[in-house]
C-alpha cells in the first residue's frame, strides 16, 4: 500500500505545489490522477518512488518512508514511466534499452533475456529489438520507455500521460494491458488528461486542482459530475454528454462508456 499523509511540497523556496495531500493506494487498484495543467500531478507521482521528498508530511510505500531510502531501492517497487521518452532513451538498440534497468538491479543474464523477450512481445516491439530507439516514431519510443520499466515487474506502476501520441489501436492495447496488470494484482496509477480513455477504463479517479485533491471516487461518479470536471478544466466524456442530453428521458446519468451506454439504451428502447 502507498500511503500519503498530509503531504506538502514546494520546489526550493517557491509557492507550495502540493498543499496537504492525503491518499491511500491499495494493491490491485487502478487509479487515474487527473487535473488541470500545473495542478501538481507529476509532482505528486514523483513522490511515490522518492524522486522528490516531502517538505512536510510523509509518503509510505509498503511501510517504507520514502525519505529514508534511496530512489534505486524504491524504484524496484514503484516503476515510474516518464511522459517524454526522449528523456531516457540512450542505448544503441531497443533490446539494450529495455535490459538497462534489469542490469542496474543485478538480474542474471538468463532472467534478463527471458524478461526482455517477453515484454517486447507484449508491447509489440519485437521487430524493433535490434533497431536504434532514436529511429522509431514518437509512439513507438513511448512504448519502449514503457517496456523498459515494466520489464522488472514492479508492484506499483506509475504512468505519466501514457496515451499521448498513441493511435486508437495502441490505446486499446494499452488499456487491455493495464487491465491485465490490474487483474494480476498490480497497482496502476496513471496521470492523464485523456477523459475518453479514462471513461473506457473505469478506474478510481482522483481529481487534483491547485495542489489539493478535490474529488476521489469511481470514474462513473467523478466524470459524470460537471462541477468537478469543470473545476479541473477537463471535459465530460462524450457518452456522459449524451446521457446529460437525454436526461429528460430519465436515463441513468452515471454511464460514461460506450459499451454500457449501448446495452443500457438498447434495453430501454426494448421496453
Amino acid at each position: 500500500m502507498i500511503k500519503v499523509e498530509n503531504l506538502r511540497f514546494s520546489y526550493f523556496d517557491k509557492e507550495e505545489v502540493l498543499k496537504g495531500i492525503n491518499l491511500e493506494i491499495y494493491e490491485g487498484e487502478f487509479i487515474a490522477i487527473m487535473g488541470e495543467n500545473g495542478a501538481g500531478k507529476t509532482t505528486l507521482i514523483k513522490h511515490f518512488n522518492g524522486l522528490l521528498k516531502p517538505s512536510s508530511g510523509r509518503v509510505l510505500v509498503d511501510g517504507i518512508d520514502t525519505r529514508k531510502t534511496s530512489v534505486a531501492s524504491l524504484a524496484k517497487l514503484v516503476g515510474l514511466v516518464f511522459q517524454n521518452p526522449d528523456h531516457q532513451l540512450f542505448c544503441e538498440t531497443v533490446w539494450d534499452e529495455v535490459a538497462f534497468s534489469l542490469k542496474n538491479f543485478n538480474y542474471s543474464e538468463d532472467v534478463i533475456k527471458a524478461r526482455v523477450k517477453k515484454i517486447l512481445e507484449i508491447l509489440d516491439l519485437t521487430k524493433y529489438s535490434n533497431s536504434s530507439p532514436f529511429t522509431l516514431s514518437g509512439g513507438e519510443r513511448k512504448r519502449v520507455a514503457l517496456a523498459s520499466v515494466l520489464v522488472w515487474d514492479p508492484k506499483y506502476i506509475v504512468l505519466d500521460e501514457p496515451t499521448i501520441g498513441q493511435d486508437y489501436r495502441q490505446k486499446e492495447r494499452l488499456r487491455n494491458f493495464i487491465l491485465q496488470l490490474v487483474t494480476q494484482g498490480k497497482s496502476v496509477i496513471m496521470v492523464t488528461h485523456d477523459v475518453e480513455f479514462v471513461a473506457e477504463c473505469h478506474p478510481r479517479v482522483i481529481l487534483l486542482s491547485k495542489g489539493r485533491i478535490v474529488a476521489d471516487g469511481p470514474a462513473e461518479e467523478i466524470l459524470s459530475n460537471e462541477e468537478f470536471v469543470n473545476e479541473c478544466s477537463l471535459e465530460l466524456p462524450q457518452i456522459s454528454k449524451l446521457m446529460k442530453a437525454l436526461k429528460d428521458l430519465g436515463v441513468n446519468q452515471k454511464i460514461i462508456d460506450v459499451y454500457s451506454a449501448k446495452s443500457y439504451l438498447v434495453k430501454m428502447l426494448k421496453r
Partner: peptide, 16 residues
Amino acid sequence: IDAQTVIDAQKSRGLE
C-alpha cells in the same frame, strides 16, 4: 531543467 528530468528518469530505472 531537461537535465534534471533526465536524471530523474534514469534514477527511476535504477541508475545509482
